[in-house]
Design a protein around this nucleic acid. Structure first.
Lengths: 209, 209
DNA sequence: CCTCCAGCTTGACAGTGTCAAGTAGTCGGC
DNA sequence: GCCGACTACTTGACACTGTCAAGCTGGAGG
């Protein structure tokens, strides 16, 4: 079997894991724009062809990193809803946005399907995990569109949170709300949407100060 | 002066314009992942170094294309709100999403600030134009957060529309709502948000069939 | 006619992803 | 105790990329 079974010899981190760790670090530090397999290999102290050997492809390595990202997202969502005593749109939205803003380049990569092997089974499984966590909300509103798995409210919230991450990451929000703290603004916007979707017609709208 | 003044000789499309057109075509056809200056130059039938000469940089060319994209978006938003007899969240949202889905790769590029010269004045101007068009909505709700230019409702809608484009482009929505038509789903979601933000607590929710 | 200059081209270079071939170490079987 | 087989790489090569320096060309201005 080729399954690593990480605790077998357990002494040295093998090349595959070192490459993954190096890739995560390199992505977090230098972003996706100027990312190269060879610099990752140098950081992991392996030869320049080692990434291709282990992952077949540039897209293969990125796919593995993205899959790790999705499972990390799933873990974060799970923890957050457990702590809050049950999943809610607000908690999940906040966690989703916080995750996206904490590691923007990784989050970006996770949705760049053009540079990944989108049909990789591990990636698909990790994606399905986090999506299942995301759609566990809103027990009141059943799926209205026939044949859907998740409710429209969940989709709306998801799209909003996703866009919020993207716009904040690219500096679009900062350009508009210049003198406001971005974190506060993001929180406020989540509240606005949450209260709008909860049915409360007009939000009380008391900003922090 | 180096300003082109396009109608001066007016006969042949000069190299700069040909490169821009070739870049747009190449981006639309092959996407951003495997885009290369040299293939763009080949398509424009100029030498491989011509892009660097005109735009200084890979990021320079991409920035010019992105700027064109923003002005095209501004034009689309303007036309749509003029046709609808005034800007509304629904019309602007639909137009924004339609624009993003019509040319997904271009839309993607426009927000990849890591691969652009984000401080380029032409890009900044074009961005400001389309953002001004976007924020012309909601005359009822003034900006609540002090120091902001646009209202929170506009920001929420913008983030939602932006995320909707991203998720649809990457196939995330399709994976969830399998047997529903994506276009109809997107329209429905826009309606849901619009009605939630308008204050109508529960949308009537009559999907097309 | 000479000069200048914008608008390229040609040629080179370092860096990149990928592939073929080779190699050190480890294991199971005889 | 030795022999293949297999895993986990490395080394070397190739085509391709973005960028830079230098050269060429045609037309405008003096």
């Amino acid at each position: 079997m080729t399954t690593p079974d990480a605790a077998a010899h357990a002494e040295t981190l093998d090349g595959r894991e070192r490459l993954l760790a190096a890739a995560r670090a390199e992505i977090a530090e230098t972003g996706l724009a100027h990312l190269s397999l060879r610099s990752i290999a140098r950081r992991a102290e392996v030869s320049h062809a080692a990434p291709t050997y282990h992952f077949g492809d540039r897209a293969g390595l990125l796919t593995a990193v993205a899959a790790e990202g999705f499972t990390a997202l799933a873990v974060a969502l799970d923890h957050a809803s457990a702590e809050a005593g049950g999943p809610s749109l607000r908690v999940l939205g906040r966690t989703y946005v916080a995750f996206g803003l904490a590691e923007p380049a990784l989050f970006d990569l996770m949705f760049r399907s053009g540079e990944l092997h989108a049909d990789d089974p591990a990636l698909r499984a990790a994606q399905a995990d986090s999506l299942a966590l995301l759609s566990r909300t809103a027990p009141d509103a059943g799926a209205k569109v026939p044949g859907d798995i998740v409710s429209p409210l969940t989709l709306v919230s998801w799209a909003f949170a996703h866009g919020l991450v993207a716009l904040t990451r690219d500096g679009a929000l900062q350009a508009l709300a210049q003198n406001a703290d971005t974190g506060q603004l993001v929180d406020h916007l989540i509240d606005v949407l949450d209260q709008a979707l909860s049915g409360t017609p007009t939000p009380p709208s008391t900003p922090a100060r």
